[in-house]
C-alpha cells in the first residue's frame, strides 16, 4: 500500500506538508521529519495533496513555522493533525486573496 506521508523539513516546524491524495477527516498519516523519524498523526479535516496539517497543538496567536521560519500566525487554537491554511493562518506580510 502507498504510504501516506506528512513531511516536516525543519526541526522547528510546527506544521507538516501532506503528500498523499484524498486524505479525509480521521485518516492516519505518517508524520516524518528530515532524518526519517516517524510517528502517526490523525487528521482533522479533509486535506488536499500538498496542503498542511499541524504537527503539534498550536494556540491562537502563536506563530506558525515552516522551513524553520515564521509563515504566519494562528487565528484560532489548532489541534495536532488539524488542517492549516488561510482559514486559520494569517500572513504577517499580506495575502493575495484579500
Amino acid at each position: 500500500m502507498e504510504r501516506k506521508i506528512a513531511l516536516r523539513v525543519d526541526d522547528k516546524d510546527n506544521v507538516a506538508t501532506v503528500f498523499a491524495n484524498e486524505v479525509r477527516d480521521g485518516d492516519t498519516l505518517e508524520l516524518r521529519d528530515k532524518k526519517g523519524g516517524c510517528e502517526d498523526v490523525t487528521v482533522t479535516g479533509d486535506v488536499p495533496y500538498g496542503h498542511k496539517i499541524a504537527a503539534q497543538a498550536i494556540e491562537k496567536g502563536e506563530k506558525i513555522v515552516k522551513y524553520g521560519e515564521v509563515i504566519g500566525v494562528a487565528t484560532t487554537d489548532i489541534r495536532r493533525g488539524e488542517y492549516v491554511h488561510v482559514h486559520n493562518l494569517d500572513a504577517l506580510r499580506g495575502r493575495g486573496d484579500l
Binding site: 506538508t17 506580510r93 493575495g96
Partner: peptide, 16 residues
C-alpha cells in the same frame, strides 16, 4: 501574492 492558484495548491502566505 500568493496567487489564487498558489492558495489552491496549499500555500497560505507570501512568506511560505
Amino acid at each position: 501574492q500568493p496567487t489564487p492558484g498558489n492558495i489552491a495548491g496549499g500555500l497560505s502566505s507570501i512568506e511560505e
